[in-house]
Design a protein around this nucleic acid. Structure first.
Lengths: 102, 102
DNA sequence: ACTTCGATATCGAAATACGATATAGTTCAA
DNA sequence: TTGAACTATATCGTATTTCGATATCGAAGT
């Protein structure tokens, strides 16, 4: 529906990976965090993204039962950290190009 | 094949859009430029991207016949420039998060 | 009981990715 | 002057991804 999504899909994953490196994350929490950054995506989009990032090997999950109900909590794997480190170089390059002086 | 592609797909489009705003671009030229940034993508991936960005309304094209053979040359539309401006804000935000001090 | 809420999962049609393959004009050496 | 090498773009087919809609399930109100 939104044609801008194409431009942002990678950025969204990098946001997710970055947060997963810093601390454990979970689905709805990520949705809210992304919403704060102006990315509107539904649960039907986000959860499959997390599943795939786990299948790819960037994230690992475990079901947490903290008193209340259960949450599937994700943290970044070593491969995820490596992928983020590489991607940061790319983001830096893009940033440099986009905001360079004439 | 490369699972990192997921992380970069948006970055690639932003590179393309950025260049199309600065000057006219064409398929193989973009491929080489992206290659210089370490993005390896085949013609079968790139051309459909350009087609879609045109269909979306970010780019407009015309066939140029500069003496030699012909090239389909793309430039950014007003909508494309607007989309890039918006995306730049997002990239800046991501950059800030990824490279913030602790 | 019933609804709302937090949380996750899955379905299905449409769109996208990408290697492989096709097409076509130019150049240039044999 | 045939044909190999190169420039340039397009399309096909399988697999994957997107994303709204829908489903599930337990907590907590009321």
């Amino acid at each position: 529906m939104s044609p801008e999504r194409d431009l942002y899909s990678g950025l969204i994953r990098l946001h997710i990976l970055h947060h997963a490196v810093k601390e454990p994350i979970y689905g709805l929490g990520v949705m809210e965090e992304l919403g704060r950054h102006g990315y509107k995506l539904s649960a039907g989009t986000l959860y499959p993204i997390l599943h795939r990032m786990e299948k790819t090997g960037y994230l690992q999950s475990q079901t947490e039962r903290e008193g209340k109900s259960s949450r599937r909590v994700y943290t970044a794997t070593t491969a995820g950290k490596r992928a983020l480190a590489k991607a940061k170089v790319k983001v830096k390059e893009l940033f440099g190009e986009l905001f360079e002086e004439e």
